[in-house]
């Protein structure tokens, strides 16, 4: 289980009243997506690419500062990037073409650029997403996605995930306590078998809960869509504030292209 009070998913959210917190969720989503697109559109092999990455980093760190998201929170957000990072680090060793000597290792020049570019782009995008996650409540994000016309089915699946993460987590926790209360310590092949059975039981229980929830929804007139309230109007100023991040990045990109 996550934080005792907020629950597993809400723990990622940092309450606050900064300008970034106050922006409408769908406006922030558009902003982060646009920023990521500009970052990804940067040509990896251009000589000015590292300068552009530095410019983007400056832009996203400025946004994080305005939002009051500290370096610790940003670093924790980067954890999701580790599998990509591992792949990026491999590239200079496996790619072909002209080689370059670094600390006695023979590395591919184009592999270095590609790996470095991949790492930089992933890191910048994840940083922007971390700022979004830290300043927007999960359910507000959901409303934002809905407003951006993400299909209802996907929104509902995400909504149930947010709602039931703690319920299922609680169930898992009780099963663990019950297991350990009967002397189970885990480890070894037998431990894996027991954990497999636990996962199976948890799946069946969750499936049955899903059926009960569906029944309760039908009983209140559910016909396939979850109706929400009317969307709040968005001030043009919100768009201006939110889009300043991708626009700054686009300016960096344009400058690079003109200069290069």
């Amino acid at each position: 289980m996550g934080a005792a009070h907020g629950g597993a998913l809400t723990a990622r959210y940092m309450p606050g009243g900064t300008a970034v917190h106050r922006l409408e969720p769908h406006v922030k989503l558009v902003s982060v997506l646009a920023f990521a697109l500009v970052v990804v559109a940067t040509p990896v092999h251009a000589p000015w690419a590292p300068v552009a990455y530095a410019g983007y980093l400056l832009a996203v760190l400025t946004a994080a500062t305005v939002a009051g998201v500290g370096p610790g929170r940003l670093l924790r957000g980067l954890v999701v990037e580790i599998p990509f990072a591992a792949f990026a680090v491999l590239l200079p060793f496996v790619a072909g073409g002209p080689q370059v000597e670094v600390l006695g290792l023979s590395l591919s020049r184009s592999g270095l650029a590609a790996g470095g570019g991949l790492l930089a782009k992933a890191t910048l995008s994840v940083l922007a997403a971390t700022v979004l996650a830290a300043t927007t409540e999960p359910r507000a994000l959901l409303r934002g996605l809905e407003r951006l016309r993400l299909p209802q089915v996907l929104v509902q699946i995400l909504m149930f995930m947010i709602r039931y993460a703690d319920v299922v987590g609680g169930e898992l926790h009780r099963m663990r306590v019950a297991r350990e209360s009967r002397g189970f310590t885990g480890g070894g092949l037998r431990g894996l078998r027991v954990l497999g059975a636990t996962a199976g039981a948890l799946f069946v229980r969750s499936y049955e809960r899903g059926e009960r929830v569906h029944l309760a929804m039908l009983s209140r007139g559910y016909t396939g869509s979850v109706p929400t309230g009317p969307p709040a109007p968005v001030a043009p100023r919100s768009w201006a504030v939110a889009l300043s991040l991708p626009l700054a990045a686009a300016a960096v990109l344009a400058a690079g292209m003109l200069a290069g």
């Binding site: 909504m159 709602r163 009983s219 109706p227």
Partner: peptide, 30 residues
């Protein structure tokens, strides 16, 4: 289903919306 309101045994089965207010609004909006 409007006329018959069933309250099931486990409230976690019944309350699935992100907030209490939205959950109570679910039926009337339907």
């Amino acid at each position: 289903r409007r006329r018959v309101g069933v309250v099931f045994q486990d409230p976690d089965d019944q309350l699935f919306m992100p907030t209490v207010g939205e959950d109570v609004a679910f039926g009337p909006r339907n």
